[in-house]
Design a protein around this nucleic acid. Structure first.
Length: 949
RNA sequence: GCCGGAGUGGCGGAAUCGGUAGACGCGGCGGAUUCAAAAUCCGCUGGGGUAACACCCUUGGGGGUUCGAGUCCCCCCUCCGGUACCA
């Protein structure tokens, strides 16, 4: 001891677990795993595939590889899936754990506009950087399955699926009334053979509310029809169709956006204003699947909130469609105004009608004005509302509207009802027309008050009701044959009446609209579609795929009110021939123009899970055996990603999957059996009293850690510490590379998993990381002699340590299954707190237990133990149930429900023994002295409560 | 407004079924080691109260059910997420 100089002190810690040591061993093992292809998972039929093992398909939502690189939010979910994947491998599963890149999209293109560098170059660079960063975490991805949505042999199949959808229609009668997708050729055969009445698809959204009401008009015999009519009819059935319609046009982004991409009248990306503008666009008839998308939610293990969000987005509501005959000079002129209502029982209170400004009846009123029509006022109103952006609509909810001069007859009373137009009625929902019942609807009430229209109550409000419109329960009044009925029976009775008089019927309506699928940007999948000289669309043949994206010289979108898609600039590419484009059934020399729209970013993410199953397959989007094996009965076994995709991506992917299911391409009904959302990682920031935020480098703490006083340096004002999203402007962004450099990847992984429940939003607290680094040091020291770097062992197994080891193995295993990683790590802490040294055998089990969390350190110790195989495929340690039970347990004793003492009994002690022990306790005897014991509650192995007073 | 979720020490959080509230970590305090510091290790740490016990209070607030409530029921408050004239 005495001669221990500085030198020997240094050498006594030469093999301490430091950031340098962590960095060295982590990168070393990452190289080894890469060389040995430790995480490669063969497919059925390939060498090394073990068919006796069960499968586990564990998947992350793949990232958009932005130029900024990984942020700390990415590795949160990725660490979770990595732990699960490693745990499952150790439990004998074949694990499919892939990673890829969602690489088409706006940011790379915006960057290309600024710099002129092709998006493909910047995107590939960003991918390389992402891959490097992810590999530094030691994630056990099977990198041999990696692909990006921009790869030609991937988007070839994205285009292929588009064609499948394009060549399909939805038969609502098929599949026992559930409805399913069928080939469009079968539809044409049925038309030809007279098996199906030839008419426009009654469910086609692009015809709803148009002048000629669909549904009714029979077009006659197929062969007698001209080419245009045939085409219009077939297109009205296609699941992918072109539609001239009002879209959300974002001039700054130079593209149309889906409803879901518009938030409060601004673009989700960038927050630019969005206008409504008519454009010809590709649409998916997702509304045909509304019911199946809704009912399918019952079959998947998803967070309740996500199911609710999807259900509300689909927005099923049951009501009735009712025809109100249009009057001309007070008599019906033969046509009717059709409305949808959820409250047909209130029809006697319909004092006016409202149609959307885009409704054809408004056009009709302008063409055929009545003496009461104020033409100029009406025309002006339609113009203003059309140009009114969504932002303005949001800001001003005052009711506006104009009387059209038209009247319809109430089909129940024959009374004339004035028809108004107002922008509070939306063309996109129902029929774009309503019967207004101000007595029972607050919006109608507000409108009626604003324009002095009559109000009739048809449901009796309670005596103490002093509100305006009454929407609650009650019996019908002022409603002739409905009077006295509660709402539900009244609805049934009126629907029956309407049916009998052929003026209405029960109808289910959905909020869900068809999916706007084209964008006017460059960096996306081209459509496999060309147009002939007449403007008719033709599919490119499957053999010609992929239709590759042509290079452009500039990517600048034109800021224009009459925008052309960027691809229109690729003139040589656009103008081709049917033969070169690969269109079958056309004269090969016929000139055609390619579709210049591109697909939206969602396209590639709609089916990537399938490609992971068989990423290199040149003949099929996924081989049948691979799909059958990996997708199994319930699809992806665990899918982890942010809840910002609760509706968009997850709904679209389900829709594609359902179509592919119907067409026999995939087996499962749903793509993602179990879904989980990791929470957001926030950061600390400071807030002034006016709620504005202050960057963290402009604030200092002039108090203590325990009683902090945060002061804005520049002003001396007190500011409050809050949690906020990480953002460059607040300077509170944490860079994962820095954290790994300071502590190593294992510590980083532990910290993110220990912060709190995976699903919770949690603040990043730099101060807390050191606790997990200390855990790594203690784990290391428990196994490795810091002076020599060699393992050191206990000579014999300590009984308490052995017991705790069994407990830890049991707890960590069950917590991983529950995704309870924070409590699993707490169990590791408890073990390390107790264990001072381990036998060789204990150490072996210990490192196998922590391997899913800290794979590098575990692998290092495991190899020092003499194992030549990677810990990746080691067995998960077993535990003995008997070791989880104590010889003696501490039992709280309560008197009147308050804890008063503790006794020690055998864990399986019976009630009598426990009761006796409790009553024998000195403290308890004192407390119940002189009182009457009314009752003694004994919970075996748990507690004793004595009721005495 | 409507629909989800949450509110527990100075902080992050734990608490399978209604059964010892605060596991575990951070921070703090005390100690060991050191010439000293960092690092590391050990102990204490919800609040009040006491010399120490005892005891009292405590899971956003108020009521209730129960032998017993962080957990179940009713009402209210706050925060986060989603959605928004959807007839």
């Amino acid at each position: 001891m005495g001669d221990q100089g500085n030198q020997s002190i240094e050498s006594s810690t030469a093999h301490r677990y430091t950031a340098e040591l962590a960095g060295e061993l982590e990168t070393r093992w990452q190289r080894v795993w890469d060389e040995r292809q430790s995480f490669r998972q063969p497919n059925p039929g390939e060498d090394g595939f073990d068919a006796s093992r069960p499968k586990y398909f564990c998947m992350d939502m793949f990232p958009y590889p932005s130029g900024a690189g990984l942020h700390v939010g990415h590795p949160e979910g990725y660490t979770a899936t990595d732990i699960i994947s490693r745990y499952k491998r150790m439990n004998g599963f074949n694990v499919l754990h892939p990673m890829g890149w969602d690489a088409f999209g706006l940011p790379a293109e915006q960057y290309a506009i600024q710099t002129g560098v092709h998006p493909e170059i910047t995107t590939k660079k960003a991918i390389d950087n992402f891959r490097r960063q992810l590999q530094r975490f030691g994630f056990s991805y099977d990198w041999s399955r990696e692909f990006g949505t921009i790869d030609q042999d991937y988007y070839k199949w994205t285009q292929w699926i588009f064609l499948k959808i394009y060549h399909s229609w939805f038969d609502p009668e098929a599949n026992g009334g559930v409805g399913c997708a069928r080939a469009i050729d079968e539809l044409i055969e049925e038309f030809k053979g007279g098996k199906r009445p030839v008419k426009l698809n009654p469910a086609a959204a692009e015809y709803a509310g148009a002048g000629d009401l669909p549904g009714g008009t029979d077009a006659g015999t197929w062969d007698a029809l001209d080419r245009e009519t045939k085409k219009a009819i077939v297109d009205s059935y296609r699941l992918a169709y072109l539609s001239q319609q009002t879209v959300n046009w974002c001039p700054m982004l130079g593209t149309a956006l889906a409803n879901e991409e518009v938030i409060d009248g601004r673009s989700e990306r960038g927050g630019h204003p969005v206008l409504r503008k008519p454009l010809r666009q590709w649409m998916f008839r997702i509304t045909a699947y509304a019911d199946r998308l809704l009912t399918g939610l019952a079959d998947v293990d998803w967070p309740k909130s996500t199911k609710t969000q999807q259900a509300e987005w689909i927005g099923r509501s049951v009501g009735a469609e009712i025809d109100f005959p249009i009057l001309e000079g007070g008599v019906p002129m033969g046509e009717a105004l059709r409305v949808f209502t959820t409250r047909p029982d209130t029809i006697f209170g319909a004092t006016y009608m409202v149609v959307a400004p885009e409704h054809p009846l408004v056009e009709y009123a302008l063409d055929m004005p009545t003496p009461e029509t104020d033409e100029s006022k009406l025309r002006e109103y339609v113009q203003t509302t059309r140009n009114r952006s969504d932002v303005e609509r949001m800001e001003n909810k005052e009711k506006t509207g104009v009387f059209t001069g038209l009247y319809v007859a109430n089909p129940v009373t024959n009374d004339p009802i004035p028809v108004w137009t107002a922008d509070y009625v939306l063309m996109g929902y129902g029929t774009g027309a309503i019967m207004a019942v101000p007595g029972q609807d607050q919006r109608d009430w507000d409108f009626a008050k604003a324009f002095d229209l009559p109000i009739v109550r048809t449901v009796t409000p309670p005596d103490d009701f002093d509100g305006e419109a009454y929407t609650g329960d009650g019996v019908a009044m002022n409603s002739r044959f409905l009077d006295g009925l509660e709402i539900e029976p009244a609805k049934r009775k009126i629907i029956q009446w309407l049916g009998e008089h052929h003026v209405g019927a029960r109808k289910v309506n959905y909020k869900l609209r068809d999916w706007l699928f084209s964008r006017q940007r460059y960096w996306g999948e081209p459509f496999p579609i060309v147009f002939d000289e007449r403007g008719d669309h033709h599919a490119v043949s499957e053999q010609t795929l992929p239709v590759t994206l042509p290079p452009l010289t500039d990517y600048e979108p034109e800021v224009s009110d009459d925008p052309q898609p960027l691809l229109a600039k690729a003139i040589d590419w656009v103008n081709t021939t049917a033969g070169d484009a690969g269109v079958e059934g056309m004269d090969p020399g016929a000139p055609v123009k390619r579709e210049t729209n591109t697909m939206p970013g969602w396209a590639g993410s709609c089916w990537y899970y399938l490609r992971y199953c068989d990423p290199k397959n040149p003949d099929r989007l996924v081989g049948e055996d691979a799909e059958a094996y990996w997708m199994g009965d319930n699809g992806v076994d665990l899918y982890i990603g942010g809840n910002e995709h609760a509706v968009l991506h997850l709904l679209y992917a389900r829709f594609w999957h359902m179509v592919m299911h119907d067409l026999g391409i995939v087996r499962t009904r749903e793509p993602f059996g179990k879904l989980f959302h990791q929470g957001m990682i926030t950061s600390f920031a400071y807030q002034r009293s006016d709620k504005s935020l202050v960057p963290i480098d402009q604030v200092e703490n002039r108090g203590t850690d325990e009683k902090p006083e945060f002061i804005e340096t520049a002003t001396g004002e007190a500011v409050q510490s809050i949690t906020a999203k990480m953002s460059k402007s607040l300077k509170n962004v944490i860079n994962p590379d820095d954290v790994i450099a300071e502590y190593g990847a294992d510590t980083f992984r532990l910290y993110e998993m220990y912060m709190g429940p995976l699903e919770a939003t949690k603040p990043w607290n730099t101060r807390d990381i050191v606790g997990l680094f200390r855990l790594m040091q203690r784990i290391w020291r428990l196994c490795v002699d810091e002076a020599t770097g060699k393992l050191h062992f206990a000579e014999s197994a300590d009984e308490a340590v052995e017991k705790q080891l069994h407990r830890m193995i049991a707890k960590v295993g069950s917590d991983i299954e529950k995704l309870g990683f924070n409590t699993a790590i707490a169990a590791v802490f408890e073990f390390v707190n107790l264990a001072k040294s381990l036998t060789r055998d204990q150490m072996d089990r210990f490192v196998r237990t922590i391997a899913p969390f800290v794979p590098h350190a575990a692998e290092e110790i495991y190899s020092k133990l003499g194992n030549t195989q990677s810990i990746t495929h080691a067995d998960w340690p077993s535990f003995d149930e008997a070791m989880l039970v104590d010889d003696e347990v501490e039992i709280p004793v309560q008197v009147m429900g308050k804890l008063r003492s503790k006794i020690f009994v055998a864990p399986d002690a019976d009630n009598k023994t426990m009761e006796a022990a409790a009553l024998a306790d000195e403290r308890i005897r004192e407390l119940i002295e002189g009182k009457t014991v009314r009752k003694i509650v004994v919970v075996p192995g748990r507690l004793v409560n004595i009721v005495a007073n």
